[in-house]
Amino acid sequence: MTEYKLVVVGAGGVGKSALTIQLIQNHFVDEYDPTIEDSYRKQVVIDGETCLLDILDTAGQEEYSAMRDQYMRTGEGFLCVFAINNTKSFEDIHHYREQIKRVKDSEDVPMVLVGNKCDLPSRTVDTKQAQDLARSYGIPFIETSAKTRQGVDDAFYTLVREIRKHKEKMSKDGKKKKKKSKTKCVIM
């Protein structure tokens, strides 16, 4: 069974824990209790493949930012979460993405942009803004509501699919490099 290491990042209060708990335990946590770091595991079937999701729910508070490099190193894919009623959390996505790329030393890291709290009427981040940002990053965008469960499975499952595509691409690139290195030079 394939294991996928997913990391949920975003500013404090955007609903990272609520999304994760909704996926794992099928219930909505409405009281806000700032996370330092929590880890969850769940076995699911995605596109006919049974897999184990190892999900790291991270601290959004700035005082825990020193811990970010460590979990970013171990993560295979990242859910970059903002709240649709919090423009600052949307603007912060850029910083999370840049930090992930720096730590992973790669421009090509599996990510999904997630606009959470889409059940709320007080939207300050337009869907088109988020779609445009995701398009500019070359990553999928999904709106979710941890409260109603809308888009929750889709967000995590899409990230797994992005990781699969990335692994497939990397193995193809690896095979191309191996083929090239088999060419021999004969000096007579």
Rank of each mutant, 00 (worst) to 15 (best):
E3A: 03
E3W: 04
Y4A: 05
K5E: 13
K5Q: 14
K5S: 13
V7M: 05
V7F: 15
V7D: 03
V8T: 14
V8M: 13
V8N: 01
V9Y: 07
A11Q: 06
G12E: 05
G13V: 14
V14R: 11
G15V: 07
G15S: 10
G15M: 09
G15H: 02
G15Y: 07
K16T: 03
S17E: 02
S17C: 02
S17N: 00
A18W: 00
A18G: 05
L19V: 12
L19Q: 12
L19H: 03
T20R: 00
I21H: 12
I21Q: 08
Q22E: 03
Q22I: 02
I24L: 09
I24H: 05
I24F: 05
Q25Y: 05
Q25D: 01
Q25N: 07
Q25P: 00
Q25R: 11
Q25W: 04
N26M: 15
H27G: 06
F28K: 00
F28T: 00
V29D: 05
D30F: 07
D33G: 01
D33Q: 07
P34D: 00
T35M: 00
T35C: 15
T35N: 00
I36N: 00
I36R: 00
E37H: 02
E37C: 01
E37N: 00
D38I: 00
D38Y: 04
D38F: 00
Y40R: 01
Y40T: 00
R41C: 04
R41K: 05
K42L: 06
Q43C: 01
Q43W: 02
V44G: 06
V44Q: 10
V44H: 03
V44C: 09
V45C: 04
I46C: 02
D47S: 05
D47P: 02
D47R: 04
D47T: 05
G48V: 08
E49H: 11
T50Q: 02
T50V: 14
T50W: 01
C51V: 05
C51G: 09
C51E: 05
C51A: 10
C51H: 04
L52S: 05
L52T: 05
L52V: 08
L53C: 07
D54I: 00
D54M: 01
I55Q: 00
L56E: 00
L56M: 06
L56V: 02
L56P: 00
D57E: 01
T58E: 00
T58N: 01
A59M: 15
A59E: 02
A59C: 15
A59I: 15
G60M: 05
Q61P: 06
Q61F: 15
Q61Y: 14
Q61D: 15
Q61H: 13
E62S: 06
E62I: 13
E62D: 12
E63K: 01
Y64A: 15
Y64K: 01
S65D: 14
A66S: 04
A66F: 09
M67I: 09
R68G: 15
R68Q: 15
Q70M: 01
Y71L: 15
M72F: 15
R73Q: 09
R73N: 11
T74F: 15
T74E: 07
G75N: 03
E76K: 03
E76F: 09
E76D: 12
E76G: 02
F78R: 02
F78L: 10
L79K: 03
L79P: 01
C80R: 02
F82C: 11
F82D: 02
F82N: 07
A83T: 13
A83C: 11
N86E: 12
N86T: 02
K88V: 11
K88R: 11
H95N: 13
Y96G: 05
R97G: 08
E98M: 06
E98G: 05
R102F: 04
R102G: 05
R102Y: 05
V103D: 08
V103I: 10
V103Q: 09
K104M: 13
K104T: 13
D105Q: 05
D105E: 09
E107H: 09
V109W: 12
V112C: 06
V112A: 05
V112D: 03
V112S: 01
L113P: 03
L113W: 14
G115M: 11
N116E: 14
K117S: 14
K117V: 15
D119M: 02
D119S: 07
P121H: 12
P121I: 09
S122V: 08
R123P: 08
T124P: 09
V125I: 11
V125F: 09
D126A: 09
D126M: 09
D126N: 09
T127Q: 09
K128D: 10
Q129C: 14
Q129M: 10
A130R: 09
A130N: 07
A130V: 09
Q131Y: 05
Q131P: 12
D132Y: 07
D132R: 08
D132T: 07
L133N: 14
L133K: 09
R135F: 12
Y137T: 07
Y137R: 08
I139S: 06
F141I: 07
I142F: 10
T144K: 01
S145R: 10
S145D: 12
A146Y: 02
R149A: 06
R149S: 09
V152K: 03
D153L: 06
D153K: 03
D153W: 02
D153F: 03
D154L: 09
D154F: 08
A155F: 04
F156G: 02
Y157A: 11
Y157S: 11
Y157Q: 10
T158I: 14
T158C: 05
L159S: 02
V160H: 05
R161L: 14
E162I: 08
E162D: 06
E162R: 12
I163K: 04
R164V: 06
R164Q: 04
K165N: 11
K165G: 14
H166W: 06
K167H: 13
K169I: 11
M170K: 13
D173N: 12
D173G: 12
D173Y: 07
K175C: 06
K176I: 08
K177I: 12
K177V: 08
K177D: 06
K177T: 15
K178H: 11
K178A: 09
K178D: 11
K178C: 06
S181G: 15
K182G: 11
T183K: 14
T183L: 06
T183F: 04
T183M: 08
C185T: 12
V186F: 07
I187N: 14
M188K: 12
